[in-house]
Design a binder for these strands. Structure first.
Lengths: 210, 210
DNA sequence: AACTGTGAAGTTTTTCACAGCC
DNA sequence: GGCTGTGAAAAACTTCACAGTT
């Protein structure tokens, strides 16, 4: 769960910023230079008023009568979200899922680089995957501390997710993206987000007829 | 976006049911038979009052003084979410991501089976991945119609996601899980959910110091 | 004419707190 | 004593609607 700072911008607003950035960079790729809260809203299925209100938390990024300068807004959002730099991410788990994450091309141009990968399976240690060498779990703490890594992803079986999380927290990681289908407990100062496709599918089957 | 039926249970409540089910089945695996809203809340980082209120939308599942019978509640939630049956899911895209999805063991015991996989790349068509044979995109419409598939996942590059979505909608799919990092537009009667790890990472980097 | 930024109003969601039951 | 289920209160969030700017 994200930290909740008092007197601050609602977390739900922060959660939409990456969606705005994603849509804006796509418009940019299409060669567009200006957009409006209405156009963005249509693309995202969000009301234009909400977009304007969200963005206004960070300053007046738009121009009345004209809209938003895309490149300018992209830069502002990147700065706000601190993705105008490259974050080095530690990955734990080099199985099917971990390998897929390592091969995924979508991190690089959006602020993230997987810099280390760990696994406990001796058969996997030393293997080269996606340009990285799989390190033993025993090296996790030292590697993370030495490099002051702040971000990690967990891609191990559910049974091991909590103990991996404990190691990561102990090593100083501040934010965890957990692909294991289980809730993990961490201290208040550590954030956790989850990716579980089944949760999304089950959410939708509720509404299906038949 | 999920359908919004008037006079009905809030969608935000529906979205939490899969999390409850996930935590409950884990407790079950640990051999537990009874739990309480407090225990569940602690595990999920949700208040106990919210859990009680959410569950009460579907009937009185608990016993005062005792708590909730885990097996009973699991069955009730499965029925409510309609995952007490196996849903057959179509997957579009057999690249890195598609392959990883096909190899993922986590769908089977939670109500889903990937039953078909499609790709447009002639080099991939006919290949056997995770027990399935990759079919050409040209067969998508007919296969989905014949089998009345209601669910699909998109795991193709962002540029192709919208056209794939159009094909799926045209073929009668009612719910789409989109792994491509782009918003897609579909008619109101079709639901879409998104999985984009970068969105979660960017959400968290906002809060990171340094 | 088109669009933003924003108080005010409206709606939704969460929490409180307690009666009732085991 | 411990726990659920639930109205009522509180908080959070979204939409409205319009003044102000280009």
């Amino acid at each position: 769960m994200p930290l909740k700072q008092t007197n601050s911008i609602p977390d739900i607003v922060i959660g939409r910023l990456p969606l705005y950035l994603r849509a804006l960079t796509r418009l940019q790729q299409e060669g567009r230079e200006v957009t409006s809260s209405h156009e963005l809203g249509r693309k995202l299925g969000i009301s234009s008023a909400q977009i304007r209100k969200d963005l206004s938390h960070f300053g007046g990024f738009g121009k009345q009568g004209t809209g938003y300068q895309i490149e300018y807004l992209v830069n502002k959002l990147r700065t706000v979200m601190q993705v105008n730099q490259e974050w080095h991410v530690a990955l734990v788990g080099a199985g099917n899922l971990g390998s897929a994450i390592l091969h995924y091309r979508g991190f690089a141009d959006r602020g993230f680089r997987i810099a280390w990968v760990f696994d406990s399976d001796p058969a996997k240690i030393g293997a080269h995957i996606g340009g990285l060498t799989v390190q033993p779990l025993e090296e996790l703490a030292q590697t993370i501390k030495e490099n002051q890594a702040k971000l990690a992803m967990i891609a191990v079986p559910a049974e091991h997710a909590q103990s991996v999380a404990n190691m990561l927290v102990e090593a100083g990681v501040q934010a965890i993206l957990n692909y294991a289908p289980i809730n993990i407990n961490v201290p208040d100062h550590v954030m956790v987000q989850y990716i579980d496709p089944v949760v999304h599918l089950q959410h939708m089957t509720f509404y299906l007829k038949d």
